[in-house]
């Protein structure tokens, strides 16, 4: 048998169980109802509504008195149009720690220095610690874990002059500030004040400025006068990958 289409030219596809076009898929879920025939019927209905028809409830068992767990197999009616698939592209690749380390080694031939702080009166170091502490966040190790990064964590309630001074003394390549408290737009005002202070004090030699916090909108970077803004759910790996990207861009720019 010969295949008529190569994967590249295919436009419409359905899930593959054991025959092309059978649309077979499996799923599992829990419903908050007691175990029994009625529960199986409910699972079947849900699967049908999800576009799985016919659907087979191949397994169910009770979890306590009030819940039932199901495994369902069936054919889905949906068709995927590959031409309509849009992938959001990040302008930089996500790198594993070893690649971050080797990229820094290659670009800078020294360690990349990161200075981090919670500025203003904000005492919530949860965010900056999740990014910097080796303990990390969401299963990823913090920036301290990266061999080629030197991390200086100044902690909470750091004044802007202190931050500028520390960045200068440590020859920071990047400055990370975290803002959690947003009363009266404190996070925006503090960040603007910070970026202005850096530009005034260091001008062209200003380190990369990065702001992070749950209430920041990543599109606000220009307004805030920073190079990059990271919002809720950012992981250390994303920040590290960005650092590599931004530093190499800068280097090209200056070269």
């Amino acid at each position: 048998m010969t295949t008529t289409e190569t994967p590249k030219t295919k436009r419409y596809v359905r899930p593959y169980g054991d025959t092309t076009g059978d649309g077979m898929a499996q799923m599992s879920f829990t419903l908050p109802i007691p175990f029994g025939p009625r529960a199986d019927g409910a699972a079947q209905q849900l699967a049908n509504k999800m576009g799985m028809d016919p659907a087979m409830v191949v397994h169910s068992h009770p979890i306590g008195e009030d819940f039932t767990f199901f495994v369902v197999y069936g054919s889905v009616q949906h068709i995927v149009d590959l031409d309509a698939v849009k992938v959001v592209e990040r302008e930089y690749p996500l790198l594993p720690p070893s690649d971050v380390n080797s990229a820094i080694k290659k670009t800078l031939r020294r360690k990349l220095v990161v200075v981090g702080a919670c500025i203003g009166t904000d005492a919530h170091t949860v965010g900056i610690d999740a990014i910097l502490n080796i303990k990390g966040f969401a299963g990823e190790k913090g920036l301290e874990y990266y061999r080629e990064l030197r991390v200086v964590n100044l902690g909470a309630q750091v004044s802007i002059p202190e931050l500028v001074k520390a960045a200068r003394a440590d020859k920071a390549d990047a400055v990370l500030i975290s803002q959690v408290v947003t009363q009266r737009d404190a996070h925006i005002l503090n960040t603007q004040e910070m970026s202005a202070a850096f530009r005034e004090a260091m001008g062209e030699r200003c380190p990369l400025l990065i702001a992070g916090g749950p209430r920041f909108d990543p599109l606000m970077a220009a307004d805030l006068g920073v190079d990059r803004v990271f919002g809720r759910g950012t992981t250390p790996g994303e920040v590290a990958s960005y650092l590599v990207h931004a530093i190499s861009q800068r280097k090209e720019h200056h070269a």
Binding site: S28, F29, T30, I63, F67, F69, G139
Partner: peptide
């Protein structure tokens, strides 16, 4: 692990 906080069914 590393995906979501465990579902009721994951624990079970």
């Amino acid at each position: 692990e590393a995906v979501v906080t465990p579902f009721l069914s994951d624990r079970d």
